[in-house]
Computed example of a mutant assay.
Amino acid sequence: MITHKKLPNGFVYIEIKNSAAEAKIALQGAHLFHYARVGEEPILWLSEVSDFETGKAIRGGVPICWPWFGFSEDKALPQHGFARTAMWDCVSCSEADEKSSSVILRLTHSQESLKMWPYLFELDLHVTISDKLTMELKTTNLDCNPFSITQALHTYFSLSHISDAVIKGLDKKPYLDALTWKDEVQEGDITFNQEVDRVYQEVDREITLYDKNRTLHVRNENSSSVVVWNPWIEKTSRMSAMNKDAYEHMLCIESANAFDDARVVKPQKSHTLKTVIF
């Protein structure tokens, strides 16, 4: 069942329920903020104090960073682009069978977007909800000129506790440490006992997240960069819409085209960033 819903303040979202899983997607930002398989705890972390208000990004779930990841050269522009707070249109909702439901949301250029990024575009997010979570972010260039994009599906995973988290699949991969701005190489598995903010490159294999109570896999296509982030104690205390202990129960593994993995999209061509979580 796919239902369009609205909070008392007017905030609109789509609720998906089938025999395999359930999910909720806000039209603002095409922001998937809930996904859980039937009989299981949510896979996505969502802040207990997150804002569900027009113009404010939701803290948790899967924010969409587009058409730039991080800050633009113009620091007056919004961090991680404008897609995550823009209103998207619902293009289609469908149910392949009782275990699989799909929603396609679309964002196109507007007078507001052209002030921040001077290109004509069509951006589609195709989400498939089943026992796997599949997200496909398709950028189509409707302009006369090529453009370059960096982007990310900024996925917040829910954890039993950060001390239990182990990431496999990034051993020997180079990364930029965003805390020191030094280039490093990963040695072994990733564990957490302090703030981590890294952009891995040359990623060509499945990533596995081990937690105390479950194991999750992340498989990406048309992406060779992955962001791993946990804000730890001090940064969490400074961040909006986060309780002071939030860092203990969340971890971001972001499927991306970031930094060296930026993509050029030629006129009338498309690029699709795809991730499957299972």
Score class of each variant (00 low, 15 high):
residue 91 V to L: 09
residue 260 D to N: 13
residue 74 D to W: 07
residue 42 P to M: 00
residue 54 T to W: 06
residue 140 T to Q: 01
residue 176 L to H: 02
residue 33 F to G: 00
residue 188 G to V: 03
residue 256 A to Y: 01
residue 111 Q to W: 10
residue 238 R to E: 15
residue 178 A to Q: 01
residue 32 L to P: 10
residue 131 D to P: 14
residue 244 K to C: 09
residue 32 L to C: 09
residue 170 L to I: 09
residue 163 S to D: 15
residue 161 H to D: 11
residue 20 A to L: 09
residue 131 D to I: 08
residue 97 D to V: 00
residue 125 L to Y: 06
residue 222 N to H: 15
residue 154 H to E: 02
residue 197 D to H: 03
residue 74 D to T: 01
residue 181 W to M: 12
residue 212 K to V: 09
residue 183 D to M: 14
residue 189 D to M: 06
residue 215 T to P: 06
residue 80 H to D: 05
residue 82 F to V: 14
residue 159 L to N: 08
residue 198 R to A: 06
residue 252 C to W: 00
residue 150 T to K: 03
residue 53 E to S: 12
residue 119 Y to D: 08
residue 232 W to H: 01
residue 245 D to P: 10
residue 181 W to I: 12
residue 166 V to Y: 07
residue 222 N to R: 13
residue 270 S to T: 03
residue 120 L to T: 01
residue 151 Q to N: 11
residue 39 G to K: 12
residue 229 W to H: 05
residue 194 Q to P: 01
residue 125 L to G: 02
residue 171 D to Q: 06
residue 237 S to M: 08
residue 229 W to I: 00
residue 212 K to Y: 10
residue 95 E to Q: 13
residue 223 S to P: 05
residue 207 I to L: 02
residue 249 H to V: 08
residue 253 I to M: 05
residue 64 I to W: 02
residue 184 E to H: 10
residue 74 D to A: 05
residue 56 K to Q: 01
residue 191 T to C: 10
residue 201 Q to E: 14
residue 231 P to Y: 08
residue 121 F to L: 06
residue 237 S to W: 08
residue 71 F to T: 14
residue 240 S to R: 07
residue 156 Y to R: 02
residue 248 E to V: 14
residue 70 G to F: 07
residue 246 A to I: 02
residue 52 F to I: 02
residue 119 Y to F: 15
residue 182 K to S: 15
residue 38 V to Q: 12
residue 167 I to G: 00
residue 115 K to V: 09
residue 221 E to V: 14
residue 26 A to M: 11
residue 210 Y to F: 12
residue 142 L to V: 09
residue 206 E to T: 02
residue 64 I to Q: 04
residue 234 E to K: 15
residue 202 E to R: 13
residue 164 D to T: 09
residue 131 D to K: 11
residue 106 R to F: 01
residue 18 N to L: 03
residue 6 K to V: 12
residue 51 D to W: 11
residue 140 T to C: 10
residue 255 S to A: 11
residue 205 R to W: 03
residue 56 K to V: 03
residue 54 T to R: 11
residue 191 T to A: 05
residue 205 R to P: 00
residue 122 E to P: 06
residue 32 L to D: 00
residue 19 S to M: 09
residue 41 E to L: 12
residue 230 N to Y: 03
residue 271 H to N: 10
residue 229 W to E: 00
residue 126 H to R: 03
residue 172 K to N: 15
residue 209 L to M: 07
residue 146 P to T: 14
residue 108 T to S: 11
residue 42 P to C: 00
residue 7 L to R: 04
residue 112 E to P: 10
residue 175 Y to F: 13
residue 146 P to G: 14
residue 152 A to L: 10
residue 199 V to H: 07
residue 25 I to M: 02
residue 68 W to V: 06
residue 200 Y to L: 02
residue 174 P to C: 09
residue 215 T to L: 05
residue 210 Y to Q: 08
residue 121 F to H: 03
residue 105 L to S: 05
residue 47 S to E: 04
residue 254 E to S: 00
residue 12 V to L: 13
residue 57 A to K: 14
residue 24 K to L: 02
residue 152 A to N: 07
residue 127 V to M: 05
residue 240 S to N: 05
residue 40 E to P: 11
residue 188 G to F: 03
residue 167 I to P: 04
residue 159 L to H: 04
residue 157 F to P: 07
residue 93 C to E: 04
residue 181 W to L: 14
